[in-house]
Amino acid sequence: MNPKDLASYATNTWCPGCGNFSILSAIRSVLAQLDQEGYPVEDVVLVSGIGCHAKIVDYLNVNSFYSIHGRTLPVATGIKLANPDLKVICFSGDGDSLAEGLDHLIFAAKRNIDVTLILHDNRVYGLTTGQFTPTSPPGFKGKSTPLGTEELPMNPPELMLASGATYIARGYTHGIDLLQKLFKEAILHQGFSFVDVLQVCVTFFNLYESYNQRTYEVKDNDTSSFDEALKIARSWNYDDHEARIPLGKFYQVDAPTFDRTFPGFEIRDVDRDSRIKEVLEGLI
């Protein structure tokens, strides 16, 4: 399959220069590759939340579910439990998953459900035209913070590590090769995989210059080490304008996944009618 086959007819309404184009291009290539490697695109479901990021499902000719603000992961969880054979990939924003839907993000990691979350982390509410989000740096002047926000930002990879996610990585929308590598790894990972993508919003928070100077790819790190991953995650806290920003895979471990261990999984191929009778008769 050619990545072009995954393009849809929808008119793209992202701003010129938006980082979302890189995410779109990377995921298209990865899905096309996976299709050739035995993971047919028919078995993939994309789920998005609400925000600029969410339009990505309109631009991909793949089964998709345009969900509710903040509720990407509950919808994805439902899809995965209903049909564990599907590859479920979520696209979400920092406002979507870290503000309105933070509880769902933590619980998806805690359960280690086998879905992938790609976080379009532009650190600003773009669709509602420029308010601060949980990852905006202190002092950020947006439409609802004319004097600059005083809140300290959240560190999503650190949060995911603490919550039990089993694959954690960070990418940047200038650097499509790395994005493709991380997306592919994350999708093939068994368990909850989280990719924080520094996605630049050119209109409301243009960080290209800063990121170009400060990002670097971590190499030779022990990705099975919680402590090392934590150290890498904490080396940049989304607040310090001087610190270098690590990209790449921070953490990956094997652990039982919710969709394989939740009650009932083992019997899903059993004749359910006879099982109901058996259970009910046992009650009497």
């Binding site: 509410y125 669709l127 509602t128 035209t129 609802s144």
Partner: peptide, 9 residues
């Protein structure tokens, strides 16, 4: 106390 949402933002 608010949260961004168009057209009330």
């Amino acid at each position: 106390f608010g949260y961004p949402i168009t057209p009330a933002s």
